[in-house]
Simulated assay, not measured.
Amino acid sequence: MTVEPSVSRRSTLRATTAATGAACALALAGCAPSASDIKKKGRTPAEIPTGGTPVQVGKVSELPVGGTAAATAGDVEVMLFRPDETTVLAYTDICTHAGCKVAPDGADFKCPCHSSVFKGSDGTVVSGPAKEALPRYAAAIDGEWITVSV
């Protein structure tokens, strides 16, 4: 006569819960962008670059005072904000939280992945989960053009 070990309901539930938790962790890890994904979206400056080449990204007339817009400077995608008639600011389009691409949202920029919001006027975080401001690029109004140095 052979005695089969009995499996309790409790041990079955523990095993099922552990397996489900592991599967969820793996699924969420697959959602996070890798470092190579972030690099493909554009370069993010550590500080405002001053020696880059100015690139025309759009006409001043297309960005109203207080407005935001997305633009491309060479191979770098940037977010623009125009605080007044004579100034334009440029920021990276890469969210400082998880590397997703931010988008213009009124006078601010918003990350569609986790809803971080950044002020257009200085790139600081309005609401998280992001903790760090968007890094800036040097930008200027040059005649009728907006230029960004990359």
Rank of each mutant, 00 (worst) to 15 (best):
L13R: 05
L13E: 00
A15E: 00
T17V: 14
A19F: 04
G21S: 13
A22T: 14
A22K: 01
A23V: 14
A27I: 13
S36D: 15
D37C: 03
K40P: 04
K40H: 06
R43Q: 13
T44V: 15
G51I: 01
P54G: 06
P54R: 08
V57H: 09
T68A: 06
A70T: 12
A70V: 14
A71G: 13
A71P: 12
V76N: 13
E77F: 00
V78W: 10
R82Q: 11
E85G: 02
E85C: 01
T86P: 00
A90V: 11
A90G: 08
Y91W: 12
Y91M: 09
T96G: 10
G99L: 08
C100L: 10
K101R: 14
A103V: 13
P104W: 05
F109D: 11
C111Y: 05
C113S: 05
H114N: 04
F118H: 01
G120E: 10
G120K: 10
S121A: 15
D122A: 04
G128S: 04
A130G: 03
E132T: 13
Y137S: 08
A139T: 07
A139L: 02
I141S: 03
I141F: 04
G143A: 06
E144G: 15
W145D: 15
I146N: 04
I146K: 08
V148S: 12
V150P: 06
